[in-house]
Design a protein around this nucleic acid. Structure first.
Length: 308
DNA sequence: AAGACGAAAGTGGTTGA
DNA sequence: TCAACAACTTTCGTCTT
């Protein structure tokens, strides 16, 4: 998978700690800050209406900037109003230029229209929120501006942008889900995702296993109690340094599996594995680590006695 | 019979020389 | 650029419920 940190680049230690409040990833061994808080990609559009008083002066004219509109409501054109008769020799050049510009811009617009249509399709398939969709559109637009689409299919860049947007908004989807929704291979999405985030210098911190819990839990129809228990387990796992370098989905799946057991809502490893997009083996491994390190086996036995 | 468990070999990606 | 490596998967045999 993608960009969760495995080792400290400074001292090579694997003791890596993830501090959500500060948005930092720190090596416990040498204190090296591996990832700073992310670049501010805050929304361009803000609502000033509700503020009493001075709001009026700040308000923009015209429609809000929406990145999902294919040309943001703006457009550039080589002047139409120039007096052609004054141009003399330059006239031909001017017309050619205008034609060229027209061709290029319509080509870009067509591409953007297509891309945004695809983006909306995939995003509604995954039931993503509007703000994630906006973010993805922004990322895609940036990618186009930097010429990063060249040599890649438009669809894969869209998928990569969506994947990145989801993670920035801490509602991560798995590569498998993106792959299913977009019809692009997992590998390809991962590749373009890595490429565009590197080129655009979009910093994305390692995804937090807890972000996956709500979705997985509801897919498994687990009670809210099990769900919050699994989050608690995850917190303890982080403290025990069980999470760094591991696939976040596997850890989330194992935590859910245990907490379901503890609340008498047994799900098979296979069921959990399927919704989390990992194998039973991975769940078993994480599960075993959780029991060993967090002494959960005692709690489990208590529950078992209760039930018998 | 289904699910859980674990060993062994294979895959794709990262890292460090 | 290449080899070592860690995480994860696939496959399969055995044990448990």
């Amino acid at each position: 998978m993608s960009t969760y940190v495995k080792k400290c680049p400074e001292c090579g230690s694997k003791k890596i700690f993830y501090n959500k409040e500060k948005g930092e990833v720190i090596c416990k061994e040498c204190g090296y800050v591996i990832e700073e808080s992310m670049v501010d990609f805050g929304q361009e559009w803000r609502e000033f209406e509700s503020e009493g008083g001075g709001g009026e002066s700040k308000r923009r004219t015209g429609a809000p900037m929406r990145h999902t509109e294919y040309d943001m409501g703006l457009g550039t054109e080589v002047g139409r109003t120039a007096d052609l008769s004054k141009l003399g020799k330059e006239r031909g050049k001017f017309l050619r230029l205008r034609k060229w510009q027209y061709r290029i811009s319509t080509a870009i617009e067509r591409n953007l229209k297509l891309a945004l249509a695809e983006l909306k399709r995939v995003s509604s398939f995954l039931k993503l929120s509007g703000s994630v969709e906006e973010e993805a559109a922004r990322i895609y637009r940036l990618a186009v501006q930097r010429g990063l689409v060249r040599g890649r299919s438009m669809e894969s860049v869209v998928a990569g942008a969506l994947y990145a947007a989801c993670r920035r908004h801490e509602v991560p989807r798995t590569l498998d889900e993106l792959s299913e929704a977009s019809g692009i291979e997992k590998k390809e999405i991962g590749r373009t995702y890595r490429f565009i985030t590197r080129e655009l210098e979009i910093r994305i911190r390692p995804s937090n296993p807890a972000d996956y819990i709500p979705r997985f839990a509801s897919a498994l129809k687990l009670s809210p109690e099990s769900q919050s228990k699994s989050v608690e387990i995850l917190e303890r796992a982080q403290k025990a340094e069980l999470t760094s370098g591991r696939g976040p989905t596997g850890i989330a799946a194992a935590a859910l599996y245990v907490s379901a057991l503890m609340h008498g809502e047994k799900r098979t490893q296979r069921e959990v594995a399927d919704v989390a997009g990992v194998t039973e083996v991975t769940i078993r491994n994480r599960y075993k680590e959780l029991l060993d390190e967090l002494k959960l086996d005692k709690e489990l036995k208590k529950v078992k006695k209760k039930n018998s």
